[in-house]
């Protein structure tokens, strides 16, 4: 029981940055802007948050800086793909490299620690929050430990991430903004005919994407760890992208997909080279690492349902002249 709860706790921890980045991608892609630059925006956000928190000593300024940098990168992507009607894939690749290069370069020249930012103290970062009564209730069998260990004891950003799931659902499917956002992703010409600006709707979606990626990065550098480390996103942006496809561009499904991929990564961390319980075999670590990608490819191939992306995804919109 304890092992299981620890494993699930680790699952949640691994899933949070994936979930934030995945929801970020959801806003962008639902509006027709394909985003393979999630990784870069997360990395840029993580660095800015780590650096700002280290210099100012405030985690709030850290979040602010992380979100700001990530939104700036998102706006570059928006400028290239909305205003200039450039290739969105190319732009996303560019963002990833600019963020990877710049964060390591600036980190090295500002702090002289090989691309790391200085270690933060507990007051300068997001530390676990104990929910009310966690201690008192932990003695209750089954439910107690689940509440005390699994639900309680994460940091603020983690709770925000899970709250963002219903919020995103509500925004996308119950507000005028969300309707327009989805409409420009499916049929921008129709939205344009209705007299609504396609570009503005897409820019807003891209900004939402930037904010959430910034939070994902912040969670990594000043939540989970006590500072930024070079290339610390380590492909999570791409796993989030895979989760987005796996969830077929739906918010609640995105949460389950991220929890699934988070669980795979938790199993990988927990059972490195040790036999798995129940089936009692040692799986190669690499198989566990590759599994999210393999599953996504199988899904894309149409063997587990069919993932149909937003219709206007990746296509720049130009008014007919």
């Amino acid at each position: 029981m304890d092992t299981l709860i620890q494993l699930l706790d680790l699952t949640v921890r691994s899933a949070v940055p994936l979930l934030l980045a995945c929801l970020a991608g959801l806003y962008s892609e639902r509006s027709g802007i394909v985003d393979i630059g999630l990784e870069g925006k997360m990395l840029g956000g993580a660095f800015a948050a780590g650096a700002a928190a280290a210099v100012t000593g405030s985690m709030w300024l850290g979040v602010g800086a992380g979100v700001m940098v990530s939104v700036s990168l998102a706006l570059i992507h928006g400028f290239a793909s909305i205003t200039n009607r450039g290739n969105q894939i190319v732009s996303g690749v560019a963002i990833n490299f600019i963020a990877a290069g710049l964060s390591a370069l600036l980190g090295n020249s500002w702090f002289n620690q090989g691309g790391r930012t200085p270690q933060l103290t507990a007051e300068q970062r997001f530390t676990p929050i104990d929910l009310p009564l966690a201690d008192t209730l932990s003695s209750i069998p089954v439910l107690g430990p689940i509440y005390a260990e699994l639900i309680s004891g994460h940091n603020l950003i983690a709770y925000v991430a899970f709250i963002m799931v219903p919020v995103t659902w509500w925004v996308l499917f119950r507000t005028r903004f969300g309707l327009r956002l989805r409409a420009v992703g499916e049929n921008p010409a129709a939205v344009d005919t209705a007299g609504i600006s396609v570009a503005w709707a897409r820019y807003r979606a891209v900004i939402c994407c930037g904010i959430l990626c910034g939070l994902a990065g912040t969670y990594l550098s000043i939540g989970l760890s006590a500072g930024f480390v070079k290339d610390m996103t380590a492909g999570r942006g791409f796993i989030a992208l895979a989760a987005l496809i796996f969830a077929k561009w739906r918010p609640v499904a995105a949460m389950w997909a991220c929890l699934l991929f988070g669980f795979l990564s938790a199993v990988e961390i927990r059972y490195q080279g040790a036999p798995l319980p129940i089936i009692d075999v040692v799986l190669p670590v690499q198989l566990m690492q590759a599994l999210p990608y393999i599953l996504t490819v199988i899904l894309l191939a149409g063997f587990i349902g069919k993932a149909i992306p937003p219709k206007a995804g990746g296509v720049p919109y130009s008014k007919e002249r």
């Binding site: 400028f79 290739n87 969105q88 600019i98 990877a100 290069g101 370069l105 691309g115």
Partner: peptide, 17 residues
């Protein structure tokens, strides 16, 4: 890492922009 950044900028300006 500077080169990685330049590479990104070239992709951005010669490609997306």
């Amino acid at each position: 890492d500077m080169i990685v950044m330049i590479q990104g900028l070239v992709i951005l300006f010669a490609g997306a922009l």
